[in-house]
């Protein structure tokens, strides 16, 4: 009954939501459902990301935040529903996913730098192989991105010799080098030692001030409140509440968000 990539009908209504795609959203997720085995982790998510927005997704662990984020560039294939990127349904099998993904940057919790390549190569390799820049152009662009995240003096280092914060900044530079339309951040500070979190958040602040469209799954509540233009609270595979971060933090409407915030405060 489950169909991969290319299904369009909502499982409950059977409706084919065509014609609703031309709204202003840069990315639109419509009715996303995702199962891992018998476990339904996304129960029909609708989310629109507009250009210039900084969306912070919060929620208890296991609530499907990361799965949702990974569905946005189809690293995880939703079982139902569509993802529309720049007006194009990218769950359609005929879409060139590699080209789409190269327009959507993603940064992971565990950095996932390429350990056999130098810092500069980590950033430059995709520019050469995907953007088809010459070696010199790619190196120049990669140096510029590394300068932007403050790692100009580490370009020849191997990733294994960098601190976690530095590795994560290289990972951000690697994604930024592709000049993506939107950046996805999957709990990028969760694996870092506390004293290294600041330098990574600093880079995100800089991106926010440059009006980069961003979707971040995060546990840094104060940061979400500070840079987020919209807050999305997820629980049990559903979006429970969304809206202005300040409003949501100060006056949560739902009981679940209240409890979540109280539990956080207790820690």
């Amino acid at each position: 009954m489950r169909v991969r990539r290319g299904t369009s009908a909502d499982p409950k209504s059977g409706r084919w939501p065509r014609g609703e795609w031309n709204s202003s959203g840069l990315i639109q997720a419509q009715g996303l459902h995702k199962w891992f085995g018998d476990n339904e982790v996304l129960h029909g998510i609708d989310l629109t990301v507009d250009t210039g927005e900084v969306i912070a997704i919060i929620g208890p662990s296991g609530s499907g935040k990361s799965t949702l984020l990974r569905c946005l560039n189809l690293l995880e294939l939703p079982d139902y529903g569509q993802v529309i990127f720049k007006g194009q349904d990218i769950t359609d099998v005929r879409v060139d996913l590699n080209a789409v993904r190269s327009r959507i940057g993603i940064v992971f919790q565990s950095y996932n730098l390429f350990p056999h390549l130098s810092v500069l190569e980590n950033v430059a390799i995709a520019l050469r192989e995907i953007r088809k820049l010459s070696r010199r152009e790619a190196d120049v662009a990669a140096r510029a991105e590394l300068h932007r995240v403050g790692l100009q003096d580490k370009i020849d280092a191997m990733p294994g010799h960098l601190s976690g914060g530095q590795q994560q900044r290289v990972a951000i530079a690697r994604a930024l080098g592709m000049k993506p339309d939107v950046m996805l951040f999957d709990e990028i500070t969760s694996a870092l030692d506390p004293e290294l979190v600041g330098e990574v958040l600093e880079v995100l602040r800089m991106l926010a001030s440059d009006h980069m469209t961003m979707v971040l799954v995060t546990h840094e509540m104060s940061f979400a409140r500070e840079v987020g233009t919209r807050l999305v609270f997820m629980d049990d595979g559903r979006i429970v509440e969304e809206g202005d971060p300040r409003q949501l933090f100060s006056a949560p409407k739902t009981e679940r968000l209240k409890r979540f915030l109280v539990d956080l405060g207790d820690r």
């Binding site: 560039n73 590699n98 327009r103 993603i106 992971f108 565990s110 996932n112 390429f114 995907i130």
Partner: peptide, 26 residues
């Protein structure tokens, strides 16, 4: 690590390029 393939695909590398440039050398 699983993340190596994900990072490569996330950047927009095709499966074969991910293998050739990222996974096989490691």
């Amino acid at each position: 690590e699983r993340g190596q393939m994900e990072a490569a695909r996330g950047l927009g590398f095709s499966y074969s390029k991910s293998m050739r440039l990222i996974l096989v050398p490691q």
